[in-house]
Design a protein around this nucleic acid. Structure first.
Lengths: 160, 160
DNA sequence: GTACCTGCAAATGTTTTGCAGTACG
DNA sequence: CGTACTGCAAAACATTTGCAGGTAC
């Protein structure tokens, strides 16, 4: 297992890719990458900067943007346009490239999901149109059933 | 057929909605709406401004943005984040709310498609997660089979 | 006639870039 | 040690907004 195998963490794959491309593993890139993949939450460039600075004072906005661009180019991160003013980044993309997103219209939470039947059908439809699918981006805006029926959203309990 | 029936054109529905909401039908709103729904191509705010100005000199950037926001709010237009710097707007959304987009990685063309099986499966998966789907956004980045096999993309013939 | 709408230009917010200094390998 | 990388601050964009004047109804 030398090069970027799927068994490696996205973080490790990022460092590996930097090494392979002859890019220097600076303390800034290390911090930003660790923070980006430090949890499974989607994040904005600005929040990544804030959290990176908290861990390593020597991180600037410019370097955050430059490192984000690298991670996206490397296929380890994806931008998801969830309709906000600024885009969010999805740290789970490398491990689960085919997952989609529910965006709850009620509580604005983002829930990830994956369905094999959808994958298959998407592939068939794409082929039928003379294409071969490379990357799929599926986002479903939806309302919360529990909230409508019981008045409470299980993902967003009252008193929060 | 009084209020916004599906049989009306999106343009007519836009004017109808303005009237219903007590908004004034100014020459600027008229021009911008007509240009937006004037063909089936996706467009950016900037290109909408340019084309609107060509038809009616008295159209400003601010009014274009304000009118775009209205048309999106009214459900007649949708923003599609096709990865560009600025978002594109989809004039076919009102007539075909469930269609998805192929984005050709080779020629960068956008091709619309619709598949009923996908609709059904999306709905089931959404329900399984405790949601009710309201709006679906599916974007598939793909390569052109004909280009790979024959060296020519039928949507983008050589000499273009 | 008047409230709503528009254009202008400035403000805002986000991302990019040029450059001089810094530090990785 | 040299070259790639960084921080800074300015630039480049995209979009929004306040306000004075214009216009649909």
């Amino acid at each position: 297992m030398t090069s970027s195998s799927p068994a490696m963490t996205p973080q490790a794959r990022a460092f590996e890719t930097m090494r392979t491309q002859g890019l220097r593993l600076t303390s800034q890139r290390k911090t930003i990458t660790e923070v980006a993949f430090g949890n499974r939450e989607h994040f904005s460039a600005e929040s990544l900067l804030a959290r990176s600075c908290r861990r390593n004072a020597k991180v600037s906005r410019a370097t955050v943007y430059r490192t984000l661009a690298f991670l996206v180019r490397a296929g380890l991160l994806r931008q998801v346009g969830i309709g906000q003013s600024s885009p969010l980044y999805d740290p789970n993309f490398a491990d689960h490239p085919r997952h989609g997103h529910f965006v709850c219209v009620d509580c604005h939470k983002i829930v990830e999901f994956h369905d094999h039947c959808l994958d298959v059908r998407e592939s068939i439809v794409t082929k039928d149109h003379g294409f071969s699918p490379k990357r799929v981006n599926l986002q479903i805006e939806a309302t919360c059933d529990a909230l409508r029926e019981k008045g409470v959203c299980p993902r967003n309990p009252p008193g929060t």
